[in-house]
Design a protein around this nucleic acid. Sequence first.
DNA 1: CAGTGAGCGAGCTTCCGCTTGACTT
Length: 773
Amino acid sequence: MPKNLVIVESPAKARTIEKILGKDFIVKSCNGHIRDLSKKDLSIDIENNFQPIYELLSDKKSVIQDLQKGAKAAEKVWLATDEDREGEAISWHLLEALKLKEEKTERITFHEITKTAILHAIENPRRINRELVNAQQARRVLDRIVGYELSPLLWKKVKPGLSAGRVQSVAVRLIVERENEIKHFQTESAFRITATFFSKEKNEKSLKAELNHRYKEKTEAVKFIKECIGKDFQVLNVETKPSFKSPPPPFTTSSLQQEAGRKLGFPVSKTMVVAQQLYETGKITYMRTDSVNLSSMAISACKKEIESMFGKEYSQVRKYTGKIKGAQEAHEAIRPTYMNAHQIEGTRDQQNLYELIWKRTIASQMSNAKLEKTVIDISSPVKPYLFQAKGEVILFEGFLKVYYESLEEDELQEDGNILPQVFKDDILDYNEIVATQKFSQPPFRYAETSLVRKLEELGIGRPSTYAPIISTIQKRDYVIKDSKKGVVREFDVISLTGRSVEEKIQTENVGAEKNKLFPTDLGIIVTDFLSEHFVGIMDYHFTAGVEKQFDEIAAGELIWTDMIGAFYKDFHPQISKTDIESKKFIGERLLGKDPETGLNVFVKVGKYGPIIQIGDTGSDVKPKFASLLKHQSIHDITLEEALPLFNFPISLGNHDSQEVIVSIGPYGPYVKYQGKFYQIPANLNPLKLTMNEALEIIANKQKGSESSIIKEFDGDKDLSIRKGKWGPYIKYKNENFKIPKGNSPEELSIEDCKQMIESARLNPPKKRTFKKK
DNA sequence: CAGTGAGCGAGCTTCCGCTTGACTT
């Protein structure tokens, strides 16, 4: 029996370390936190100086039992959880929950999983850092108080089941405010003047240049263009400057999510799932980290790869240090475990993500790209303005040989082009000079990844929570991921070729956005409510402020219960005050009077979402209600748009002597035909649905269910092989059966299927236990 | 899964940050 038990946070890590330490050590994983405040109630004894009341996590029972057994048998227990605030707390909870004796317990930490680092850690154990643990308790208790006092207030004032918290409420606020900026954005336009010049003598390729001034008015632009007719243009100056580009640092959770989003089109959650798979199969280091640091081993491995692939001049050893404030760097950056594995076996997604990580890691240890930037100034007929041509030439690729960092939409810049050679005082002629009307752009809506980036910038949330935050705010209906079609906009173009000036109107499609986060009516209302009554919590810098205090607690300069006490003293009375003084906060708005009945018409957010209401609440006649359609908002819907919602259900008439009905149900708009329901796609307006469209929806659905059939059998009409959410399965009458792995569904015979059904019946799958939601 | 929303009131919902299961129709 091994004398030593080492406890780490993750099983994959445990396996690796066990190999390193050898037979005297057994290494087990606690799988993260094992104890927490009870979910049922606040579980903080306010009267008793905010003492937290912890309980063991129910889903960790078997883990804890196993650890307890191991600890009993061992002579020494080594707590080797992560070296950050949460990790320290996990060690402390282990100490308490497993009832470990302090004298036979050691706390060790290491930054990289190598033999040297781990042996060094074993030789230098320490005690649990109580101050750091207290900083974690303060974090935990603060989040609980905020979440569990704000949420019930929302249930009462807005709608049951809602939630609020230090992180999620600010995330929603970012999206709501961005939407407001877009709504109030004043578009301005100006005329951008571009020209293509050529040298009469040299007959080289043409030179594109832009005037360093934009004219606000069309008349001014036209006047300028006319001034150019027949003029010569002189090269005033040619300036060439060397320049360089450095590679981006290795991946953190957040930067990986962004790049995988932009380059591979992965949503945040998918990136994490695939990265987890790579981690578990030992291909990459840990995927939840905010560190850009690489181990010395990784750095030398990179160097070796780069030098053998590209040569010495491409290698440049770099040490990256985190710049994010408050980052708790318990892990390395995300990198391949073995730099010499350029590709891996696995699914397409795994290979793509791995390749991205490999390239980014390699690039981070490569030399700068060397560039030459050239600016050519060319005279214009109107002083003091001049035309400028900008070019960029890559002299030495450096890291660009393997990796280009993609840019956010708002960072997109025009690439410098390659310029023909011209000299000072050269005289140029023009091919064309064009004035194009350009419109200023409103800010972009957040996508999942850009929201994560913003949260990280503000120090809000942690690598392990970025993906859950995104899903929580959508699950609560505060935010929806959606796409928006652009609108066509006209713009003026005035062009000069030879001596003729031509004016045209062209069109462009603007404002189209894909997979962006839009606030819902509910999200807007909850944000307004919280911003009005809880300015402090909703402040974008609230988290940064409390993080600073957590650091002080960790440094022993502040007592954690004092910090929480000071916070609670202001926060709790604000909850009570709002509870008493604030009325229902559901965005109710009077639209006008119903022309038929003369009754008041309102919109508001109801128990099941945004609704329109005819008649006053509490009057003798029971009011009538109807749901708003998707894309309608209580904030701007008009009486004329709202009233037709009461027309449902709408009969479209008969088809094959059966009635076709359109209506709105709890799951959205639908067509009902022959007792069956068919969902109406979001791009069709249910109010204006035609019989033909309805029949098409029905036909599509029926085709869809047919196309899920992989194979049918003439011998048995009840039997079919179908494609399902979890892969192919056998359908027999109304029952479904799993196909054991390793069979190709197309080749199964009736007998094969019957046999599988037989064996499935003999070994029924365990009932899935659903977690209470 | 499919046409809810008054009022009454029981009993329910909720936070953030660590981790990985179990394995479906």
